[in-house]
């Protein structure tokens, strides 16, 4: 496959991701999983998760940071560029159209109802992806403890996600440096 073709595929995959990211950054996981892991086998789900984690340690928009990190892994700088452009393009098109055409977009009842249903499906898709990710990332008591504590800290509003991520990485080094070193 030629380089241009690969980049176009990446752009198209992330365009779809941008188009259907409703309800925060993680909601795009099921689509990334389908497009890049299952269909094209370009990247492993393990690597996708690494990129997601790192995306949250950077400022700005998580979805676009994740796109840049995944894109870079696959095709270096060019990959990062097309992935980010892909993920922001649907917003640019949709919002511009809305600003041009509808003044009262959210008042159209059919649109509102459709989005209600879509949010529900996104939840189901997210849980479906989550169960697969869980099997990869949580493989013993210690990882279960890290996952559980992170959930509790963020859910309870005790620590912000960035601090939790940094602590999680630190614990990883402490607990697993010997084991993975061999």
């Amino acid at each position: 496959m030629t380089g241009i073709k690969r980049l176009l595929r990446l752009y198209y995959a992330f365009f779809k991701v941008g188009l259907f990211t409703i309800g925060g950054g993680y909601a795009m996981l099921p689509i990334v999983e389908q497009e890049l892991v299952k269909d094209r086998e370009l990247i492993s789900m393990d690597e996708v998760m690494e990129c997601y984690t790192l995306a949250q340690t950077l400022p700005g928009v998580i979805a676009s940071n994740a796109a840049a990190l995944i894109g870079y892994r696959l095709e270096r700088k060019r990959g990062a560029t097309v992935s980010v452009l892909g993920v922001i393009m649907p917003s640019i098109i949709m919002i511009t159209l809305i600003a041009m055409v509808f003044k009262q977009f959210e008042n159209i009842e059919a649109v509102q109802n459709a989005f209600k249903g879509i949010r529900v499906v996104v939840l189901a898709l997210l849980i479906d992806s989550f169960t697969r990710l869980y099997k990869v990332a949580v493989f013993d008591r210690k990882t279960l403890l890290i996952a559980g504590l992170s959930f509790a800290m963020v859910m309870g509003g005790i620590l912000n996600p960035i601090i939790v991520i940094l602590i999680g990485g630190f614990f990883g080094v402490i607990i697993y440096r010997e084991r993975v070193g061999r």
């Binding site: 993680y26 996981l29 393990d46 998760m49 690494e50 997601y52 984690t53 949250q56 997210l126 989550f130 990710l133 869980y134 990869v136 990332a137 949580v138 210690k142 990882t143 279960l144 890290i146 996952a147 559980g148 504590l149 992170s150 959930f151 509790a152 800290m153 963020v154 859910m155 996600p161 939790v164 991520i165 602590i167 999680g168 990485g169 630190f170 614990f171 990883g172 080094v173 607990i175 697993y176 440096r177 084991r179 993975v180 070193g181």
Partner: peptide, 15 residues
């Protein structure tokens, strides 16, 4: 090793 910890953390965050 850091990524082992990070991935477990992200499971909590996705939760």
């Amino acid at each position: 090793a850091a990524f082992v910890g990070l991935k477990a953390t992200v499971i909590g965050l996705i939760g």
